[in-house]
Design a binder for these strands. Structure first.
Length: 613
RNA sequence: GGCUCCGUAGCUCAGCUGGAUAGAGCAACUGACUUCUAAUCAGUAGGUCUCAAGUUCGAAUCUUGACGGAGUCACCA
């Protein structure tokens, strides 16, 4: 960490002076000394044994002695086996605390003058947001915040899948069975309203399909198409798509609607716009509750034809090749992947082509040299291929592409399936978790001296924090199980636990309006003070690590450690009742810095801090 | 079958740029609220870090191979 730069430089000098050995500063890793041992920071000596041909104990002793002599920050040392433990002076700690206090926004790193685009959420317009989206949104949002703190200029975006046969299904169902109802007239949130018609379409279609199966036509199809040993039920289950495409009246109507939409038919486009507006209003409401927003929206209705130019460019570059049937492909076998189609023989785009075109469009729009795609891990291969194609097309942003891939959220019963009605709705979940917070709060009695409104607001913050922290504390790549029946915890390794540490500090600071004085003569710092300060000092490194690894869980785990350490500190050491005014000032300052760091870290996770709880 | 990801305490997870005796939370048990508010703290118990081999002074961490789980390998998105 940067606070140790000086010490590390002195170590370099010491190795040079004592052994005439050139050591690279980056090789000298100082880690906080384990609690069982004396000292503040530890250098592992073993790596130097080979070069110096001396025992680790001897090297440790000689370097330690030299450090005490030349460094104004090292006051003592001890060597245990191959570990050199350095004890630093009180001044070192106080200087660093001063520096942190003097930093404008502690945790924000130097500006990088580089743009990065982060895509997340990216829903379909025919279904409300669910549990899976919540993980996606929290990860993407947090990643954007972290990159911003790390100095990038961030553009948050999503691409909305607002076209295709699925969208036409809900449009058709509403036209046929909607009776002119609207979200306003029914009081149903827009995205749920439209989603209901998507479900209704499926229901009506199933009815139609069921009836058809016993008709002469259905039976003939079964008799001629089914495998010998296939039961009627199994056959019809597998045949559903074919039925939709070849026999269904509803299917025919939906496909006609899609054609009409693609042709720009007036009434169809009007209906599409009207229903989309309902959905978007619903989405915005959910985003607001989750406290997230976007800088730029892309719509598939605008981008689904993109990528044609890229295909041409690829052909010219010799990156793509054309088959005799005139379909266009890329050969990625030398990169360990397969051949991949980029344009159908009828000249239309596929998903891959669309993504190529969209990436190029985004680069034109914003000039971002990094693009982060927050998409579930089932699409790992797709993005591997996409990024390889971009490299071969020599796109200027190709090296900055990253797939923020995350594991699915499972229920105890397995995968969420909309058809089986096991989807956990985002709005319901948030309401539930806030109710949990309310129950927990009621159990512990009223929060003193705040209005009912503030109380409600606090409970909201606590509930949402519990949910968000729960989802974001585990590494993105890990698949997670979510049991909606088990209430989200409010105690232990949770969001509210961290909020509580913050609230405790705030409460002390409110009482101590006089206490922010001088601590320059405070000496003999407590170990717990040093441990706490060391954690705070490591925070900028944690932000950097999270940004480099696109991993918000790093921040979450740091916040938990810091809160835990503070809770312990709070319990063991008097702050307002400190032995001296200097000690009190030091502890108040330290606490305020902990609060600022917690707030900054939790903000990177999209979690708000209450002032009281 | 090929490729990718995951496998650490009963459960949920940290730790993984190799370093000292592998850490938390939940659940169980015990103790601490007239205190800077206990959504807290302290303690007990719980581990062949899936297995095997290799590299190394040193491996949960790196390499290889097995085993188990998930995903993917569409002219779907």
């Amino acid at each position: 960490m940067k606070f140790l730069e000086e010490v590390i430089n002195e170590l370099v000098v010491s190795f040079k002076t004592v052994y005439n050995l050139e050591v690279d500063a980056s090789k000298l890793l100082l880690s906080p000394t384990k609690k069982e041992f004396e000292g503040d920071f530890t250098l592992v000596i073993f790596p130097f044994v080979k070069d110096l041909k001396k025992s680790p104990e001897q090297i440790g002793d000689e370097i330690g002695k030299q450090m005490v002599e030349i460094s104004s920050q090292v006051k003592d040392y001890n060597v245990i086996k191959g570990f050199l433990n350095l004890s630093l002076t009180d001044q070192f700690w106080k200087d660093n605390l001063d520096e942190i206090v003097g930093t404008e926004v502690y945790g924000d790193l130097a500006s990088k003058d580089e743009k990065v685009m982060v895509e997340f959420s990216s829903p379909n317009t025919n279904k409300p947001l669910h549990l899976g989206h919540i993980r996606n949104i929290l990860l993407g949002w947090s990643c954007a915040k972290i990159l911003q703190a790390a100095g990038y200029e961030v553009i948050k975006t999503q691409i909305i899948n607002d076209r295709g046969i699925a969208v036409c299904k809900s449009m058709l169902a509403w036209s046929l069975f909607g009776d002119g109802k609207t979200p306003e007239s029914t009081g149903i949130k827009g995205d749920h309203f439209v989603g209901d018609y998507y479900v209704l379409f499926e229901t009506k279609f199933q009815e139609e399909y069921g009836e058809w199966q016993s008709t002469a036509e259905g039976q003939t199809v079964f008799a001629t198409r089914a495998d010998l040993d296939q039961s009627e039920a199994a056959f019809f289950k597998a045949y559903k798509n074919d039925y939709f495409n070849n026999y269904s009246a509803l299917g025919k109507a939906a496909k006609e609607m899609l054609l009409a939409w693609e042709a720009g038919d007036g009434p169809t486009v009007e209906l599409w716009k009207k229903m989309n507006a309902w959905v978007y209003a619903g989405f915005e409401e959910t985003y607001d509750k989750l406290l997230v927003n976007f800088d730029k929206y892309y719509y598939e209705s605008d981008t689904y034809l993109l990528g044609k130019d890229a295909v041409k460019k690829g052909l010219d570059l010799g990156v793509f090749y054309q088959k005799e049937d005139s379909s266009i492909w890329i050969d990625l076998t030398d990169a360990g992947m397969d051949h991949k189609l980029v344009q159908r023989r009828d000249g239309t785009s596929v998903y891959m082509t669309q993504d190529i075109g969209t990436a190029q469009l985004r680069y034109q729009d914003f000039g971002a040299t990094k693009m982060i795609y927050t998409v579930a891990d089932e699409q790992d291969y797709h993005f591997q291929v996409l990024f390889e194609i971009m490299k071969r097309l020599k796109e200027p942003f190709a090296e900055g592409l990253f797939h923020l891939s995350y594991g699915m959220v499972d229920l105890p019963t397995g995968k969420m399936k909309s058809r089986e009605g096991t989807v956990v709705d985002a709005d319901d979940l948030m309401a539930e978790v806030i109710a949990e917070a309310k129950a927990a709060s009621d159990e512990r009695g009223e929060i003193a001296e705040i209005s009912a409104e503030e109380q409600q607001e606090t409970i909201r913050k606590i509930g949402i924090a519990a949910l968000k922290f729960f989802m974001i504390k585990v590494h993105p790549k890990k698949r997670m199980t979510f049991d909606p029946k088990e209430s989200v915890d409010m105690q232990g390794q949770t969001g509210p636990y961290i909020q509580n540490a913050y609230v405790r500090i705030k409460s002390i600071l409110r009482r101590a309006n006089d206490g922010f004085g001088d601590y320059s003569t405070y000496n003999e710092l407590e170990d717990q003070e040093k441990v706490l300060l060391t954690l705070v000092m490591s925070y900028p490194d944690v932000v950097l690590e999270a940004a480099n690894g696109y991993d918000p869980s790093t921040i979450a785990n740091f916040c938990y450690s810091l809160a835990k350490e503070f809770h312990k500190f709070y319990h063991d050491i008097r702050i307002l009742g400190a032995e001296t005014e200097n000690a009190k000032s030091f502890r108040l300052t330290l606490s305020s810095v902990v609060a600022k760091t917690l707030q900054h870290g939790m903000d990177l996770l999209g979690i708000e801090m209450p002032e009281k709880m």
